[in-house]
Design a protein around this nucleic acid. Sequence first.
DNA 1: TTGATTAAAACAAACGTTTAATTAATGGTA
DNA 2: TACCATTAATTAAACGTTTGTTTTAATCAA
Lengths: 207, 207
Amino acid sequence: MEQIDKKAAILIEAEKLFADQDFDAVSVRDLAKAANVNIAMISYYFGSKEKLFEELIISRMANSQTTIQSIATDPARTSIEKLMAVVDFYTDRLMNNPNVHRMINRELSSSNRPELRELLISKIETNKTYIGKMLEEGKANGTFRPDADMGLVMINLFACIQYIVGSPYYSCKMLDVPTEAQLFDPEFRTRIKTYFKELFSHYLLKK
Amino acid sequence: MEQIDKKAAILIEAEKLFADQDFDAVSVRDLAKAANVNIAMISYYFGSKEKLFEELIISRMANSQTTIQSIATDPARTSIEKLMAVVDFYTDRLMNNPNVHRMINRELSSSNRPELRELLISKIETNKTYIGKMLEEGKANGTFRPDADMGLVMINLFACIQYIVGSPYYSCKMLDVPTEAQLFDPEFRTRIKTYFKELFSHYLLKK
DNA sequence: TTGATTAAAACAAACGTTTAATTAATGGTA
DNA sequence: TACCATTAATTAAACGTTTGTTTTAATCAA
């Protein structure tokens, strides 16, 4: 009996394994066993283990550019409302796709696959540009303090959420969250969102 | 002619290689070549590649517990002064030892070596406890807002600096810092410290 | 019968580790 | 100091596994 879509099955299992272990720590035999397919299928469908890995990351990395752009350029929102919307969107986006962001996180921290890293950065950079402009606009229109460090505000938001998602086991222990599942619960998401909204409001808004 | 300390040479080169690449991506032959020693010397001195890796991390992970403790329990400092001192200390500590913290960062994000991860977490947790008590004390004595999220303040500081140090290539691009070396310059350190001091002051202090 | 799909086996290369042999250093004895 | 015995350090080669990938043959659906 043939499976409808073995290629999809491989991608699903690969996502789980690569989220938790390094690229080299996962063998094609591990992948084949988890997806219940023959070893040859990885090369057959993807060409190589590395191409499977790249295809997996790229396909799972949803396109967030249009959303960020529409938030950043929305004339109906004030500067602070835009920032709140970015916090919400970014928190949900990462917490909805923890596996792929763990992979991305690990790719960005090593030079094992430089071309892939470059590709990921270029995608992320587009969003950074939009949010950067958005924050500078808030300075220009008098909403935000002129001496606020907008570069660090951005990387602070990105880094902190990426870090929690990328090292869930560690983060649970540090935040006294009992299970990793609870880390992605709506309750904890609200906590994250509230924290950053208050944090940035206090830091950015004029008194 | 015998080398004086081949073991130290191996550790030095291993630190560079493991900082930039995954554990499995660095072979013992790479290590031996970089340190200019025979392959057998890794097993001879360390027992195995994995033991070398563990010994490297543990030996390079300086003991920060006594410093954090003395800051947190210093009666001469106010609560806000203690927090500022922690920001300074933590920034310098990570930026002075980027290589080992890149390794730690990567270890915390995977379950490739669970025992090592557990060991690292237990060491970090001690500091977390001290700083946590310090922040709660600030709440109790009326310095800090009672509804501030101290857990997230802590992980925010840790995560953000660890992230910048752990993914320097990426961070440079995001922060418009031209070279990785400049990321660890005094100038950029001051920027980080100033940012967090202002950020946390605005968020924590009562108005 | 054809072409797509599968499984099992085989492939060479690379892996971490060990062996066996050799050289260098050390310590005690005369 | 000179000598020998012993330990330690170093090397090249080989070890058995595991790696990612490919081949071959069989099976299946159309």
